[in-house]
Amino acid sequence: MALKKHVVFPKQEQIIGILGENLKLARKRRGLTMLQVAERAAMDRGTLREVERGNPSISIGAYVNVLRVLGLQKDILKVASDDVLGRKLQDSKLL
């Protein structure tokens, strides 16, 4: 059975690209080489390069491993933690 390719729209590609750039800047601020981060994240340099480019086909696990190496793993918990729209929808159903 063939895997279905997920469609990522341009605005979301841009967001993932910004995430990759942020990870690259965080690595550089820490004075770490691509090889050091790749080894510590249990991936090859090519995969790290694609993470830093914001390639949407790279697994979220790879992104989380890079965050871990950079000491930023808890930042992933900030995603969707303040669901303003969801809370408004929930509140409107309570009225």
Rank of each mutant, 00 (worst) to 15 (best):
L89D: 14
R68V: 07
G17N: 11
G17W: 03
A38V: 03
R27E: 03
D75W: 07
Q73T: 02
E50P: 02
G17V: 00
L19C: 07
A38W: 01
A26M: 05
D75S: 14
K4H: 14
L35E: 15
V7K: 10
R68H: 11
Q36V: 09
R29C: 08
E50L: 12
G17E: 09
L72Q: 01
E50N: 13
G20D: 03
K5S: 07
L70G: 03
L67W: 00
L19T: 03
L19S: 00
Y63G: 00
G54W: 02
M43N: 05
I16G: 09
L72E: 03
G86S: 09
K11N: 11
K78R: 14
V69Q: 03
V8W: 03
A62I: 01
L23W: 01
N22E: 12
N22D: 13
A41H: 08
R68N: 10
Q12E: 15
L85Q: 15
G61E: 14
A80W: 07
L25G: 00
L48N: 06
S92E: 06
K5R: 12
P56A: 03
S57A: 11
G46I: 07
G54R: 07
G17P: 05
S57K: 08
K78L: 15
Y63F: 15
N65E: 11
L77W: 10
G31C: 08
N55S: 05
L19G: 04
K5D: 05
G46E: 13
V8N: 04
E39I: 03
Q90G: 08
L25Y: 02
N22V: 02
K93D: 08
A41S: 02
L48D: 05
V8G: 01
R49Y: 11
L35T: 07
R87T: 14
L32K: 11
L77Y: 05
I58K: 05
D44S: 01
S59D: 06
L70T: 00
P56H: 03
K11Y: 09
Q36P: 00
K28A: 14
K28L: 15
K11L: 11
G86H: 09
S57I: 10
D44N: 15
Q14Y: 09
I76G: 06
Q12A: 14
L85C: 06
I15C: 01
I16C: 04
